[in-house]
Amino acid sequence: MYDLTGFQRDLLYVTANEDEPHGLALKDELEEYYEKQIHHGRLYPNLDTLVDKGLLEKGELDKRTNYYQVTQRGHREIEARREWEDQYVSPEV
């Protein structure tokens, strides 16, 4: 996961929280977090990168709409990242 951009990590995390979300649902969630518009030209190439890296699977809902889900490898990478972060970020007392 070290080779992902922050946006790609956020996209992976948001996908992990949903049940087979489509691209526009992910876009809406990220726009709420970033408080700005996410263009399709940014969203879909980054989704494709996560698919190419084996972190997401892409399926077809219909002829125009794809869904995404985190692979087992993606879940392992998320867990490893969280363990790494926990070394440096302790919970507030």
Rank of each mutant, 00 (worst) to 15 (best):
Q69K: 14
P91G: 11
E77V: 08
E57S: 14
V14L: 10
L24S: 12
G23C: 07
W84V: 02
D48E: 13
G54P: 03
A16N: 14
Q37C: 07
H75W: 09
K27F: 05
G59F: 03
E60S: 15
V51K: 08
T5G: 04
G59C: 00
R64T: 10
E35W: 01
Y13W: 15
L30D: 05
T71C: 12
R9M: 13
D86T: 08
E57V: 07
R82Y: 05
Y33M: 09
E83P: 04
V14Q: 11
F7M: 07
R81S: 03
E32T: 13
Y2I: 07
D19G: 10
S90H: 15
Y13S: 08
K58Y: 05
P45S: 00
I78T: 02
D19R: 10
D52Y: 07
V89Q: 08
E92M: 11
V93S: 10
P45G: 02
E77M: 09
L43S: 03
T71E: 08
T5Q: 05
G6Y: 05
Q8D: 00
E83T: 15
L50E: 08
H40K: 08
I78Q: 03
L30E: 04
E60Q: 11
G23I: 09
G41D: 10
L11K: 06
P21C: 11
G6S: 08
D86W: 06
E77W: 04
D3R: 02
A25T: 10
E60F: 04
E83M: 10
P45R: 02
E35C: 01
G54S: 03
E18D: 15
G6L: 13
F7Q: 04
D62S: 07
Y67E: 02
G54W: 00
H39W: 05
R81K: 10
D10P: 00
H75K: 15
Q69P: 04
G23S: 15
T65G: 01
D52P: 04
E57N: 13
K58W: 02
K53G: 00
N17R: 13
E60H: 08
A80Q: 13
H22N: 14
V93M: 09
V89H: 11
T65K: 10
D3I: 00
E83G: 09
I78R: 00
P21W: 09
E83H: 11
E29T: 11
K36I: 04
Q37M: 06
L12A: 02
E29H: 06
R73P: 01
H39F: 10
Q8S: 04
F7C: 02
L4G: 01
L12C: 01
E29D: 12
E92K: 15
V89G: 06
Q8H: 04
E31N: 01
E85N: 13
S90I: 12
D48K: 14
K58L: 02
R64D: 07
Y2C: 01
Y13K: 13
G23N: 11
E18L: 14
M1V: 12
A80I: 02
T15W: 05
V51S: 05
P21D: 09
